[in-house]
Design a protein around this nucleic acid. Structure first.
Length: 776
DNA sequence: GAAATTGTGGTTTTT
DNA sequence: CCACAATTTC
């Protein structure tokens, strides 16, 4: 038997040996999807003698593409496979054929910060105050993104929108900005992310010869994560397989989490309608996770109503119980996670195999603090990607303007960075002058040839500064043609004064390191291109598509690190141990989703994605209180949190619950937990007895007033069962951690017994730890 | 024109 | 709370 079919289930084999015609693989999490794709690629090559370069596999992220490539190369020993993302595929196609639709091959790619810059500039030109618009800039971008996904140019957009009289005014303004934005992009010879897809669709749609040529080039198309494709990506997939129909798509409707970004899960669900002859294969055996984990995931996702009923199952062992831990507040939650993971690490689990996941990036803060406190190395898959760092954006802007002389956004970014005496006002006059002349086609060309001295008036100082800048750029315009990308970067840093400017930066070391890293990345890219200029162009264009998952903030040099990551970014990854924090209404599900059924289902899918990343252990955590931002009062205040409704959707027997209080101690209410394990991690000295007795009236820091129902002194430490006034079920409390005192005693007296033992570490048993929680 | 200071507004997820 | 914009001061 061929090695491609080794160790596969019958159903997986069916997918691997699929040759011609459309196929849809519904692949549940951990069902061996990547393996199936890689093996099919390999099988096509070795069994059917398809040339590797005629197979195109499209994934969602660069990282996924790299992994896929690695796997395929390992199997086939061939390196000329085509594996890329939709966006980078489009960049390549547009570079090659873009001239047919008036796109210069040296186009720049604008990310959202570039877009925002551009739109702000446009608004200024239109004499509009960004703050007085009836919508936020982000609304504008999502609006035009929808427009572009529906292939609506500004004119088409407005004619469609105006049918709705209520929205007419709103749409009119959007239209005006959209129109100017498109014109500005064209003048700047730049494309935004949606354009990359849209222009490619237009290319394939309108030019049969190009379509044929590309379809000839790629005989077999595989698309991964198909549930997250948008309309344009579907169209590209269809156009590329128009004749041969060799479209092999893989996805999982339950993992569709990008509908807010115009992903259309229907692309997958309706695949059968589109291609009635399609082979349909469902992979629902999970090879990744324990039964406990799968049970939680499956019970949760079965609460979605708009869903093909489908059961994920596994032949794996039961494994550890899934755990829910409730903490007092986010910092306590982070403390629990940190201590627990240090316990796991001590137990021999590699930090690399552990991830902490959350709904929003800001939740990483508490985790970072605690991890640093305990000196556990972590990798933050960050809010701020490498690409978005200021020094990196600046470098790229310098290079971009040298490549694309029309790239106005880049020019405006660096013309006074570092400060060289060219104020925004000066730049605006200069730009105005450029716009109103017709002799020079590019803004950089205009700057360099300097007739602008006649076109507008600025003071001597500004004029001299502009002159110096032009001189400096002039010296580099030819260098971009001959220097390697990394030498070019060094040259820019030297010539522009950026180096000296950086030295004054408080974050100098980091920024310098980032720039060095940029050079390394430049060196690594596109080894097969020989011309230095082409290489730089390739680098800049592909660099714009790098995702945050590709790079990260490292806390030290070791590679062995715990991962902090958003649930969205975690898709496609797997870890032995996964913590998902913030299981509270308003956090997860996110507050913006609470009133919308469809969005709630997507939040549920997001949890499903998170839970199914885990191989061995899953911990869900939440907080009783959380400091939130109050719109009205402009004050931070501690708000009591309602547990996530998703938790109640998971039957109790599948999720063991425990409480965690601020002193780093878990009250395990389920016997399946090995309490000893946790005590060891805390390095606490066991205590003796407390002075609480049955029927004592007590005050608890969190739960308020209650009566001691029973005292258990069999263990090393007392366990009190307390019926609190406001809580139906009596709660188990360990009095040793100072969160409780007798009603008729003041707190200090109650704490007396604490003198009998000590708590290791710098922790002091004082009131400090409580301050702030109950204010307001 | 740049730096320092005050004010303001905004918090989801990202190719 | 934090980032960035506007305003004031140098």
């Amino acid at each position: 038997m061929l090695k491609e079919l080794d160790n596969l289930s019958e159903i997986q084999k069916m997918a691997v040996i699929h040759k011609d015609g459309p196929a849809m693989i519904i692949a549940g999490p951990g069902s061996g999807k990547t393996r199936v794709i890689a093996n099919r690629v390999s099988y096509l090559i070795s069994k059917h003698k398809i040339f590797p370069e005629r197979i195109l596999a499209v994934t969602f992220t660069n990282k996924a593409a790299d992994e896929m490539r690695e796997r395929c190369v390992a199997l086939t020993n061939k390196s000329d496979l085509n594996i890329s993302t939709f966006h980078s595929l489009c960049v390549s196609l547009l570079r090659q054929y873009g001239s047919r639709i008036n796109i210069d091959p040296y186009f720049s790619i604008y990310d959202d910060s570039d877009q925002t810059r551009l739109v702000k500039r446009i608004l200024k030109d239109m004499n509009k105050d960004p703050k007085k618009l009836p919508f936020k800039i982000s609304t504008f971008f999502s609006e035009i993104s929808v427009a572009k996904n529906n292939k609506l140019a500004p004119a088409e957009y407005i004619s469609r929108e105006q049918k709705d009289p209520d929205g007419a005014l709103f749409s009119q303004i959007i239209y005006e900005i959209y129109d100017s934005y498109e014109k500005a992009l064209r003048i700047a010879n730049s494309l935004d992310f949606d354009d990359l897809l849209l222009k490619t669709v237009l290319l394939l749609e309108n030019f049969e010869d190009i379509r044929n040529e590309i379809e000839e080039r790629y005989q077999y198309l595989l698309v991964d994560e198909f549930q997250d494709t948008n309309k344009l990506q579907l169209e590209i997939s269809k156009k590329l397989t128009e004749k041969n129909k060799n479209l092999f798509v893989v996805g999982d409707p339950d993992q569709s989490i990008y509908s807010w970004r115009n992903a259309e899960p229907r692309n997958l669900l309706d695949f059968e309608k589109l291609f009635p002859e399609a082979s349909i294969i469902k992979l629902d055996q999970n090879y990744r996770s324990t039964k406990s984990i799968i049970a939680v995931a499956d019970k949760l996702i079965s609460n979605n109503t708009e869903r093909f009923k489908r059961e994920l199952w596994t032949g794996n062992k039961d494994g550890n119980d899934a755990v829910l831990v409730t903490a007092r507040n986010p910092s306590s939650e982070a403390e629990f996670v940190t201590r627990e993971l240090s316990y796991l690490i001590n137990k021999g689990i590699s930090p690399e195999e552990i991830a902490v996941m959350y709904r929003v990036n800001s939740q990483s803060r508490n985790m970072e603090d605690k991890l640093e406190e305990l000196q556990i190395p972590y990798r933050l898959i960050g809010a701020l990607g490498f690409r978005e760092r200021r020094e990196i954006k600046d470098m790229l802007a310098y290079i971009s303007i040298l490549i694309n002389h029309n790239d106005e956004v880049s020019l405006s970014r660096i013309i006074n960075t570092p400060r060289r005496g060219i104020s925004d006002a000066t730049y605006l006059s200069f730009r105005q002058a450029f716009m109103s002349q017709s002799q020079y086609e590019s803004i950089l060309g205009y700057l360099l040839s300097r007739p602008w001295k006649e076109d507008f008036k600025v003071n001597k100082r500004a004029e001299a500064a502009l002159d110096r800048f032009a001189e400096m750029i002039k010296g580099m315009v030819h260098k971009v043609k001959v220097l390697s990308t990394e030498s070019l970067i060094s040259e820019i840093i030297e010539a522009s004064g950026y180096g000296t400017y950086l030295e004054a930066d408080p974050d100098y070391d980091n920024r310098l390191r980032n720039i060095e890293e940029l050079k390394v990345k430049a060196r690594e890219i596109s080894l097969d291109i020989t011309d230095p200029f082409d290489k730089t162009v390739e680098f800049v264009q592909k660099f714009a598509l790098i995702t945050k998952v590709d790079d990260s903030v490292e806390t030290d040099q070791e590679s062995d690190k715990v991962t902090l990551i958003t649930l969205h970014q975690a898709k496609g990854l797997e870890y032995s141990v996964v913590f998902i924090i913030g299981f509270e209404q308003g956090m997860l599900p996110h507050i913006r989703s609470l009133d919308d059924h469809k969005e709630m289902e997507e939040e549920r899918r997001l949890c499903y994605v998170g839970i199914t990343r885990a191989k061995e252990r899953i911990y869900l955590t939440n907080c009783l209180n959380r400091v939130t931002w109050n719109n009205q009062g402009k004050n931070m205040f501690s708000q009591s949190q309602v547990p996530s409704q998703f938790l109640s959707e998971i039957p109790k027997e599948f999720l063991k619950t425990a409480d965690y209080d601020d002193f780093g101690k878990i009250n395990y209410t389920e016997k399946n937990f090995n309490k000893e394990d946790y005590v060891k991690t805390e390095k606490r000295i066991n205590i003796k007895h407390s002075n609480f007795y049955v029927s004592d009236v007590v005050i608890h820091k969190i739960f308020g007033r209650g009566i001691v129902v029973s005292v258990d002194r069999n263990n090393d430490e007392d366990e009190l069962l307390i019926k609190f006034d406001d809580i139906d079920e009596p709660k188990l409390i360990l009095p040793a951690f100072g969160s409780i005192h007798k009603e008729n005693q003041n707190e200090e007296d109650s704490f007396d017994y604490l003198k009998d033992f000590e708590i290791s570490g710098e922790d002091s048993v004082g009131d400090d730890d409580f301050s702030g929680y109950f204010e307001d």
